[in-house]
C-alpha cells in the first residue's frame, strides 16, 4: 500500500467534510478496497473510514412499510436483522462472501463499488429500492451506470437504502468457483403490481433488469413462464469461468429457480 492518512469520523457531517479533501477516498467495510490498496491500484491521500458512524448502521421498518438499511450496515447484521422484515434480502446478505467478510463488508460499500458480480445490486434493482445519500434520493433504476459505475458524485455517501418489500422474493446465486462472487445471480421480486427481475454477474453492462421475464412473470408467476424465453449471449461476460452462452443459460435457469423458491 502507498501511505495515506487515516480519518475515522463519527458523524456523517464529519465524513462529508473529510471527503472534501484532495484525493480523499471513502472506506466502507474495506473488503474490496483494502485488497485494491494492497495491490497499489489506488493511492488516496486520505482514507475516510465510515465504520465509526453509528447513525449509518442498522436495519428498521419505516413508517411507510419499507425496510431501511443504513449504508454502513455490515452484511452479517442485515442477514440477522432483516430476517423477518425482508427474508430474501436477509438471505442474500447472508450469502455474500464468507462470515468474516460479512462482519465488515457493508451495503453502502457494495453499492458504491457496483462490482458487476456483486449481490446487493440485484436486490436493490429488483426491489426498486431508493438509495439515500447525504445529498439526495436516487431510485435504483437511475443508480447503476454499468460496471463499477454509479450515479454517485465525488464525495457523496450512501446513508441508507430503502427497500419496498415484495410479496414474494428470492435471490438465486450461482457462485464463481474461485471468488465465490456471483457468476450470475438473479433476484426476483413479486409485488402486487408486477414482478421485477434483476440480474447480476452476467452482463458486461453490470446489473440489469430482465424486462422480458418480468412481463412473462407478471402474467403468470411460475417457473415455466421463463423456461421458454430466449436469452441472448450478446453482451454477456465471457471469461475463464463462463462463456457468454453459459451465462445466458444461467440467467434463464436461475430466474426459473428463483420463481420456484420465492
Amino acid at each position: 500500500m502507498y501511505a495515506f492518512e487515516f480519518a475515522r469520523p463519527r458523524t456523517i457531517a464529519e465524513a462529508v467534510k473529510a471527503l472534501k479533501r484532495d484525493e480523499a477516498l471513502a472506506l466502507g467495510g474495506g473488503q474490496t478496497l483494502i485488497p485494491t490498496l494492497k495491490n497499489r491500484l489506488a493511492s488516496p491521500s486520505v482514507l475516510v473510514s465510515l465504520t465509526g458512524i453509528a447513525e449509518m448502521k442498522g436495519v428498521c421498518r419505516t413508517d411507510d412499510g419499507m425496510v431501511a438499511v443504513g449504508g454502513g450496515t455490515p452484511h452479517a447484521v442485515v442477514a440477522r436483522e432483516a430476517r423477518k422484515l425482508y427474508p430474501a434480502l436477509a438471505a442474500l446478505a447472508g450469502g455474500i462472501g464468507d462470515p468474516a467478510v460479512r462482519s465488515r463488508g457493508t451495503i453502502g460499500g457494495s453499492l458504491a463499488n457496483n462490482d458487476p458480480a456483486a449481490c446487493y445490486p440485484a436486490a436493490v434493482l429488483a426491489s426498486g429500492a431508493t438509495i439515500v445519500t447525504n445529498r439526495r434520493k436516487i431510485p435504483a433504476d437511475k443508480f447503476f451506470r454499468g460496471m463499477f459505475s454509479t450515479a454517485l458524485a465525488e464525495g457523496e455517501i450512501i446513508i441508507e437504502v430503502r427497500f419496498p418489500v415484495p410479496r414474494k422474493a428470492s435471490y438465486q446465486k450461482f457462485r464463481q468457483p474461485a471468488s465465490r462472487f456471483a457468476l450470475t445471480g438473479v433476484f426476483v421480486a413479486r409485488f402486487d403490481d408486477g414482478v421485477r427481475v434483476a440480474v447480476t454477474g452476467a452482463s458486461e453492462g453490470g446489473v440489469y433488469r430482465w424486462k422480458e421475464a418480468e412481463k412473462a412473470l407478471t402474467a403468470a408467476f411460475r417457473p415455466s413462464a421463463v423456461e421458454g424465453l430466449k436469452v441472448s449471449p450478446k453482451g454477456m461476460i465471457g471469461d475463464l469461468h463462463g462463456t457468454p452462452e453459459y451465462r445466458a443459460n444461467l440467467v434463464r435457469v436461475l430466474t426459473a429457480r428463483a420463481v420456484a423458491a420465492a
Partner: peptide
C-alpha cells in the same frame, strides 16, 4: 491458465479455485 501473451489469468484466489 495463461493467455496467449503469457499473462497468468488465474493469479489469485479470485480466479484460481481452491
Amino acid at each position: 491458465v495463461y493467455d496467449s501473451s503469457g499473462q497468468l489469468l488465474t493469479a489469485s484466489y479470485m480466479d484460481y479455485a481452491m
